[in-house]
Design a binder for these strands. Structure first.
Length: 523
RNA sequence: GCCUCCAUAGCUCAAUGGAUAGAGCAGCGCUCUUCUAAGGCGUUGAUGUGGGUUCGAUUCCUGCUGGAGGCACCA
């Protein structure tokens, strides 16, 4: 429909390159579609309007020009009837698009570190990464989910030191000892070197046990969250690859400085800065490992795009790494995309892994469960929704008692509307077709058919919150409809009303699914 | 000091350069003899500050103020 309207406007203007937009107005009172073409081309205002009025496409009932020259299009009753039929017919597939068909995309997210706690920051990365993956999938691409984990490095040595000393919480104890005690620090440094080359049997044993325990525990959390990864990459494997890449390009891209190998990114872009890729001990840093990871990803799969999701604090760092990629593998640079998210805060204060006040994902989920009748699906939905409803990139203040509870702008609200629609259909025992007489067009009908466009826009902008906003609006309209219309009954319209309920159920379910939020049938 | 991001209602968040800046919470007032009240209806209330570009600016440019993150061997 949108494309048809655009074509007609270009015809009216006689200019195939004309610059204007056709959009859904924010207020439904202003029509189903709207264009600013008559404002952009003020001298041809009447000409455009007249042409559109005389060439109304099928499905458009009314065309009007208001205000400074907005032209609004109102869709016909038949269009809505047709769209209900389409939604019911397509069912689970409604909303899927093909704009990315044939593309293969890898999305890397979550990235917890073995030996350390899976905390609410990882929860945030996971919710966003899973939603982005699904949105891209819904638009036709093949998605490979990847998880990159730091299984070597000083944080691991700290944890192994803690294990060796029989600490109940090995990483926290090791981290504290590293800060407070010089002797412990030396021990930890030594453990780190030994773990890198796996030269100490006793340490290896501790390491292997700790690594497995930790990874198994992560899997439990992924199951709860509804994520399944295709690839797990580890720093222990990317480190040697990255080191080799840097060594091969030292003198060309990288330079030696104070015994380390560095990249002067500011030479290529004044906004960037210098970073160390191989330290003076000859060990590759995170930067070099990232280069190794990049190479490995593109060797593993023939990717059209590689998306990495991390916290904001890695933003500037990532720009430097991307510039290094640009120098070494220019053909890969424009296939790479970095998205960064903010910090999940509780109103009581920030969370920090350094001060030890980490909030583990598990305890957090348990806390929320306690507020929603102990239903895990609802708790997961509440958390994911709170993360996805706001723009990626901003910090999120998560108020457990208020925002998550159960009302209004929340995951529970959407799940509840969906469950309620499902229950109505079960009671009616009648579904799968549009029957009965069509009544007046309601807000809920006017929202339903927009879903596919919303998913496509969310994909284009990497903005899951467009979908949450839409779903909340739809659920609100449905609840309003529900409160005011007798759905089940003998009236001539009740078959048609039931079809609306069915369509709502489908769209809510698909919408929640595309966000990675559970959609229980009953609540 | 330099770089990046951010500033919208009492609170948490929206708004592809467009129409009267939208929601939800909280507050106030209604609403269950009827299909899920975890619901619905009504109501109060906002673009940090000075310029600029534009027919039109929350949006783009710029000065200031305030906040977050980053800036060489952590990730």
């Amino acid at each position: 429909m949108k494309a048809t309207l655009e074509r007609l406007i270009r015809e009216a203007l006689g200019d195939p390159q004309a610059d204007f937009v056709v959009e859904h107005p924010t207020d439904l009172k202003m029509g189903d579609y709207s264009t600013n073409a008559a404002i952009k081309y003020r001298d041809k205002k009447e000409q455009i309007f007249e042409y559109l009025n005389n060439h109304k496409p099928e499905g458009v009932e009314k065309v009007e020009m208001v205000g400074p020259g907005f032209i609004n299009f109102y869709l016909s009753k038949d269009f809505y009837k047709g769209s209900l039929n389409k939604i019911i017919k397509e069912g689970d597939k409604f909303g899927k698009g093909e704009s990315l068909k044939g593309e293969k995309v890898m999305v890397e997210y979550t990235d917890p570190n073995p030996f350390k706690e899976f905390h609410i920051g990882h929860l945030m990365s996971n919710a966003i990464g899973e939603a982005i993956s699904r949105i891209i999938e819904w638009n036709g691409a093949e998605v490979k989910r990847a998880n990159y984990q730091g299984d070597v490095g000083i944080h691991v040595a700290k944890a192994v030191w803690g294990m060796k000393n029989g600490e109940r919480n090995p990483y926290v104890a090791g981290a504290k000892a590293y800060e407070d005690n010089e002797k412990s620090r030396e021990e930890i440094e030594e453990i780190n070197t030994k773990l890198y080359d796996r030269s100490d049997k006793e340490l290896n044993a501790l390491y292997d046990v700790g690594r497995k325990e930790s990874l198994d525990k992560f899997e439990d959390i992924y199951r709860k969250l509804g994520t399944k990864f295709d690839y797990y990459f580890f720093e222990s494997e990317t480190a040697p690859i990255g080191k080799k890449i840097v060594e091969e390009n030292t003198g060309k891209v990288f330079e030696e400085s104070d015994g380390a190998v560095v990249f002067h990114a500011e030479k290529h872009n004044p906004h960037l800065h210098t970073r160390v890729f191989i330290n003076s001990k000859g060990l590759p840093t995170y930067e070099a490992k990232e280069l190794g990871l990049t190479k490995k990803k593109f060797e593993t799969e023939d990717l059209d795009e590689s998306i990495v999701i991390t916290a904001n604090e890695q933003s500037d760092y990532f720009c430097v790494v991307l510039e290094a990629v640009n120098q070494i593998y220019p053909e890969l640079r424009n296939k790479m995309m970095h998205l960064s998210h903010g910090v999940l805060k509780l109103p009581s204060g920030k969370m920090s892994s350094r001060t030890g006040e980490v909030i583990s994902a598990e305890s957090f989920i348990e806390d929320i469960k306690g507020k929603v009748k102990d239903d895990e699906q609802v708790a997961i939905g509440a958390i994911k929704y709170m993360i996805l409803r706001s723009n990626i990139g901003g910090d999120i203040v998560f108020d457990i008692d208020k925002s998550v509870s159960t009302e209004g702008d929340s995951g529970v609200y959407l799940q509840y509307a969906h469950a309620r629609a499902n229950s109505l259909l079960e009671k009616a025992g009648n579904r799968g077709q549009v029957t009965g007489e069509q009544g007046q067009i309601r807000e809920v009908e006017r929202l339903l058919y927009r879903f596919p466009e919303i998913v496509e826009r969310a994909q284009a902008e990497y903005a899951p919150h467009h979908i949450t906003t839409y779903l909340t609006e739809l659920a609100g309209s449905f609840n309003n409809f529900y409160a005011h219309e007798q759905v089940i009954g003998d009236s001539p319209e009740s078959g048609y009303r039931l079809a609306i309920v069915e369509a709502v159920k489908i769209v809510l379910k698909n919408g929640l699914t595309v966000l990675g939020i559970p959609a229980p049938e009953k609540m």
